[in-house]
Design a protein around this nucleic acid. Structure first.
Length: 387
DNA sequence: TGTGCCGGGCA
DNA sequence: TGCCCGGCACA
C-alpha cells in the first residue's frame, strides 16, 4: 500500500528511528511535511500514527536498529486502510499530479497564488481552481488541526500561510478580473494568472529559476484588466493610482478602483497621501518608488509618471488645514519643483543647506504666525516657499 | 543670533 | 494623526 501511495502522492517518506519522526515529502516540491508520531501511544488524533509508522517500516528500509514489535494481522489491515486513506487523499490533488513546469493556461491559478511562488515553491501548493478547496487538505489538514495532538510547526506554517492567503485569493478574484501581460519585447503574452505569468517569464525569458530571475519576473509583466481600462482615463487620481497604487493605500482610496495586487500590497503607502499630507517629507516618494530593491509595480512605473502624476491637483474630500489649502491652491508649480529637487536632498537625514527663498517666518513674521504654512508652524520644511 | 527644519514626544 | 518643541546646522 505504501508503495502504491508513493507513486500516487508521496515521493519520499523517511523515518527517523530515534525520534519517531516520519518525513513525508509530497511530489518532490520541497514542501516537506514533518509528522511527529506517537510511537508509543495509540492515540488516533492523527490517523497515521504508530501503526502507520510500522507500515512504513515495512515498505521503507530503515537504517536504525530499532526492534520491530509484533503486529497482529488486524493491525496490519488497519494500517493498510489508514495508509490508503491518507495516501488516497494526498493523491487526489490535481495540482500534485500535474507537471509543474509547463505554462499554465489562463485560469489555472488565479492571482494571489503568486505569493507562494515567491518563496520558491512555484505555487505548487496554491491549488486554486475556482473556489474549490484544495483536495488533499481536508483529510490531512483537518487531522493535523485536531486538538490534543502535538503541534507540528512546519506544517502549521504551511497551513497558516494557506489560511492567510486563501481569503485574499478569494478577494482578489472577486475584486479583480485582471490579466497579466508579458512586457518582454516581442512577447506580449497575456495570462490571467500571475503565477503563470511569472512562470512564463521566468522560464521563457529569464531562462531558469535562479534567485535573481525570481525577483525580476515582476518587472516584465504588467497587470491589465477591464476595470483598469475603463476607469483609468476618468480622473487624474485614478490614473495615477492605476490599481496598484490604489491598493497600496488602505485608508484613503477605498472609493477608487481596486485592483488588488499582492505586490502592490507590499508597496509603501501611496505617494498621493505622502505628497498631500506630509509634503515636508517629500524626499520619501522618490526614494520609495524608485527603489531598485523593491520589485513592485511601483518600481516598474516610469519615473516620469511618478513625478508627474502627483503634481496634478485633484479635489479631495479630506479636511485640510488652512496652510495646506493655501498650498494646494497656490503652490502646485513649486510643489513639482520640490519633488523633482528632493533627490538632491538625498536621504532625509541629510540636512540641506539653507535656501534663498524666504520662508513664512520671514514673510509674515513671528507675530503673524497664524499665517504661516502648516509646516512652518510645526517647524517643518516650509511648504509654501520651498527652496 | 536668527532661521530652517529634523527628529521625537505628546495627546 | 495632528500638533508642538528641543536641538542642531547654517547663514
Amino acid at each position: 500500500m505504501a508503495a502504491v501511495g508513493s507513486r500516487a502522492g508521496l515521493d519520499t517518506m523517511g523515518i527517523d528511528g530515534q525520534d519517531g519522526l516520519v518525513y513525508m515529502q509530497c511530489c518532490g516540491q520541497g514542501e516537506g511535511v514533518q509528522k511527529k508520531l506517537n510511537a508509543g501511544s495509540a492515540t488516533t488524533d492523527w490517523s497515521v500514527d504508530a501503526n502507520t509508522q510500522q507500515t512504513n517500516l515495512m515498505s521503507f528500509p530503515r537504517s536504525s536498529g530499532m526492534d520491530l514489535p509484533y503486529r497482529s494481522p488486524e493491525s496490519v489491515e488497519m494500517d493498510e486502510i489508514m495508509a490508503a486513506m491518507v495516501l488516497t487523499s494526498l493523491s487526489c490533488s490535481p495540482v500534485v499530479q500535474s507537471p509543474p513546469q509547463k505554462d499554465l493556461l489562463p485560469g489555472d491559478m488565479e492571482c494571489c497564488g503568486g505569493d507562494l511562488s515567491d518563496s520558491g515553491s512555484s505555487g505548487y501548493w496554491s491549488w486554486d481552481h475556482g473556489n474549490v478547496s484544495p483536495a488533499p487538505s481536508p483529510s490531512v489538514n483537518e487531522m493535523d488541526r485536531s486538538p490534543g495532538r502535538p503541534t507540528d510547526e512546519g506544517l502549521h506554517m504551511e497551513l497558516d500561510q494557506g489560511a492567510c492567503e486563501e481569503p485574499e485569493a478569494r478577494r482578489c478574484k472577486s475584486l479583480s478580473r485582471g490579466a497579466y501581460r508579458c512586457l518582454w519585447p516581442g512577447c506580449g503574452k497575456v495570462l490571467t494568472s500571475r503565477v503563470g505569468m511569472k512562470r512564463h517569464i521566468r522560464i521563457l525569458h529569464l531562462g531558469g529559476g535562479s534567485e535573481q530571475s525570481h525577483r525580476e519576473e515582476d518587472f516584465y509583466y504588467t497587470e491589465v484588466s477591464s476595470e483598469d481600462e475603463d476607469t483609468a482615463p476618468s480622473s487624474p487620481a485614478p490614473s495615477f493610482s492605476s490599481g496598484a497604487w490604489t491598493s497600496c493605500s488602505s485608508t484613503q482610496s477605498q472609493d477608487t478602483t481596486v485592483l488588488s495586487s499582492p505586490l502592490s500590497q507590499s508597496a509603501p503607502s501611496s505617494v498621493w497621501q505622502i505628497h498631500t499630507e506630509h509634503l515636508y517629507q517629500a524626499c520619501s516618494p522618490i526614494q520609495v518608488t524608485l527603489s531598485p530593491g523593491s520589485p513592485t509595480f511601483c518600481s516598474w512605473t516610469p519615473p516620469g509618471d511618478v513625478q508627474q502624476k502627483p503634481q496634478i491637483p485633484a479635489p479631495r474630500s479630506r479636511s485640510v488645514s488652512v496652510g495646506e489649502q493655501w498650498l494646494q491652491r497656490n503652490s502646485t508649480s513649486t510643489r513639482s519643483h520640490t519633488i523633482s529637487a528632493s533627490p538632491s536632498r538625498g536621504h532625509c537625514s541629510f540636512r540641506k543647506g539653507r535656501g534663498e527663498a524666504k520662508k513664512c517666518r520671514k514673510v509674515y513674521g513671528v507675530e503673524r504666525r497664524d499665517q504661516w504654512c502648516t509646516a512652518c508652524r510645526w517647524k517643518k520644511a516650509c511648504q509654501r516657499f520651498p527652496d
